[in-house]
């Protein structure tokens, strides 16, 4: 036991889609270093929701029950909390590439920001509802996980869009159609769409009683995108250094008294 009477290890189950990989790497790196949070070592066991055992995520067409393998992963017995990274790349689907009919929008939180003079200006609600549509299945998964498991939970914010050069270096990694300098959306637009998405995720978490782990300011470059040193080896993901930071933040949040409870 620690001095505060707590078990010496802070155990958690990590579940998620592609962004969970960086988090898992970060957690394992922290464990290897013997990192502690509040005097407790951290120990995470991760599950990748795209693994065959966990797909489809629901056991029935009505989506009334989670896939039993996901339920079993949540029913760990030893975990102090559940760490989630659900979806998170929907903003890229919307924003990475400009269609022939260019678009831009006004972000409510920065309504005076410049707009693309050649673009059709759509309402932010158009972006929000489009993201809602793309995020629908993953939000259902989040709701079902919350409803299934009583452990405290935290959702890690998806990383911000990656710098332009990084995306262009991996044009086919995640997108069916090739993107190039001309067709790729501006940094500002990509960041705005990400802001809309993370706002929705934060709101969903608040409604579900899931703690929300925001990307800290030192993860951003001067352009408001993910800083180059924490980019992963593709066009949309972060690396294990980013994972370490986010795991540490999440662990601190969940280890703090009266935090992160469902």
């Amino acid at each position: 036991m620690t001095g505060a009477g707590l078990p010496p290890v802070l155990n958690f189950v990590g579940l998620g889609h592609s962004h969970v990989v960086a988090l898992a790497k970060g957690a394992y790196a922290l464990e290897a270093k013997g990192a502690e949070v509040g005097g407790r070592a951290i120990c995470g066991r991760f599950r990748y929701l795209y693994d065959a055992d966990f797909t489809p995520p629901f056991a029935d067409a009505a989506r009334s029950r989670l896939n039993p393998a996901i339920e079993a992963a949540l029913d760990d017995g030893a975990a102090d909390f559940v760490l989630l990274s659900i979806g998170g790349n929907e903003h890229n689907v919307v924003s990475i590439r400009q269609p022939a009919r260019r678009f831009d929008f006004i972000l409510g939180e920065a309504s005076d920001a410049p707009l693309d003079p050649k673009a059709e200006i759509v309402p932010e609600a158009a972006i929000r509802e489009t993201l809602r549509d793309y995020m629908n299945e993953n939000m259902r998964v989040l709701q079902a996980i919350r409803a299934t498991c009583n452990l405290p939970m935290a959702l890690v914010e998806p990383p911000p869009p990656l710098p332009r050069a990084q995306v262009l270096a991996y044009p086919k990694e995640f997108f069916r159609s090739q993107i190039d300098q001309r067709s790729m959306s501006s940094d500002l637009l990509r960041r705005k769409v990400w802001r809309v998405q993370v706002g929705m995720m934060r709101q969903a978490c608040a409604a579900l009683g899931v703690a929300y782990v925001e990307t800290p300011s030192d993860m951003f470059g001067a352009d408001g995108l993910l800083k180059a040193s924490v980019c992963g080896q593709d066009a949309t993901h972060a690396n294990d250094a980013y994972g370490e930071t986010m795991i540490e933040l999440a662990a601190r949040l969940m280890a703090a008294p009266a935090q992160g409870s469902g």
Partner: peptide, 14 residues
């Protein structure tokens, strides 16, 4: 018309 970036469901919602 709805901008093509919007999904059908989003266009309906708006």
């Amino acid at each position: 018309t709805a901008h093509p970036v919007m999904t059908e469901a989003a266009a309906r919602a708006l």
